[in-house]
Design a protein around this nucleic acid. Sequence first.
DNA 1: AGGGTATGTGACCGGTCAGTAACTTATCAC
DNA 2: GTGATAAGTTACTGACCGGTCACATACCCT
Lengths: 216, 216
Amino acid sequence: MKRTETAAATAEAIADAPCGTKVRVRDRIFETACNLFYSQGIRSVGVDAIANEAGTNKMSFYRSFSSKDELVAEYLRDSERQFWEWWDYVVAAYPNDPRRQCEALFETQINNPCDKNMRGCAMANAAVEIREEDHPALAVVRSHKSAIRDRFRQLAREMKAHEPDVLGDALMLLMNGSIQSRLIFPGDCGPAVNVARVVKTLIDAHIGERCPAKKR
Amino acid sequence: MKRTETAAATAEAIADAPCGTKVRVRDRIFETACNLFYSQGIRSVGVDAIANEAGTNKMSFYRSFSSKDELVAEYLRDSERQFWEWWDYVVAAYPNDPRRQCEALFETQINNPCDKNMRGCAMANAAVEIREEDHPALAVVRSHKSAIRDRFRQLAREMKAHEPDVLGDALMLLMNGSIQSRLIFPGDCGPAVNVARVVKTLIDAHIGERCPAKKR
DNA sequence: AGGGTATGTGACCGGTCAGTAACTTATCAC
DNA sequence: GTGATAAGTTACTGACCGGTCACATACCCT
């Protein structure tokens, strides 16, 4: 009832693409699937539900995607692409200033999507939901997280941190922890509210002259 | 086949309780369920599988538990109990030394369970897997995470941190991030390897005299 | 011995879900 | 217009899963 109405509306909206040409079913399905996977989870969203919400049917789904598993993998690949797009955009605002770049990453990450439909990290959630070790999506998750780790360490190196790997890893932990905490503390950001200040403090402690050595 | 053999073996092992008396079916089921839920996930473990692995059957399951959902909630409550047990044990080693307590929490957390069957935080994983807003387990997760946040802030206050809430939240993010990273970087600890050192640095920056003010 | 309680067994119900088959209907290019 | 290609429709299979029923059996306490 109401479901189909909104579904039709959504499909309509997506169908009328920017240039006026009709969007191929495949793309409608894919976009719908990404939204549903993120907001409802991978396992709890069935193929039928996706096709329905995209204003089409299961048969068309299987004409575009070989299996649900493959679609899930593609969903994560897209999520990865978006992530780096966001990252590069934020970083580009402060060329040759790795410290500001890093801080900006945390500031925008906190300010921007502090809305209700924040459901944590698509990658991490997938890693939780998928248990089959050979699922094509798992490889995407692992390589993505490794890449993030590398980028943070690289950033720390550019900041001339005393221990770039330690700082880089710490930044990654803070970011993952922040995103995750949004899943459990819905609405507000939970313990992630002040992460940007913590990052500054942490960077301070890792660059420049050391503080008057505290013995311990 | 192989499954049933190990199942029987496990059931046998659990059945022979320490004192020699037979363990009630309920307890066998519960322990089995906890292990399976943690290692395989909640949604992918069916009641049949649990009963089987516990060396019994579905009917006995439903004689002990009103529903799977209730069992899941109980599983999380038990996980919570174990968590605080661990916390209190670690903390008790350094009475009246909140800083050492805090550091110890991170040290043991890293050293102890760096084994293969680390699958992240049972609570966080449940929050990902469970989408029904009224699921009894969700309340357990939320209250537990809030409690942890409070404890970390309390610890920061006892450390006489300049901004106890900021430090407390940061510690929580680091811990959540560390545990989560173990799910994605199996085997080694991933970016969590050096978290204990980061914690020390962070505490240093939040207590005692401030460093010669860096202007920014 | 006997009765109550705990447990085991197998069949079953209703529902969901991934994936397939066969057929029909639009759409578009030429 | 015609033919190819994309998309919609309906119905189906086989597997799984949560939960229930009726009945049989083991165990323990008195």
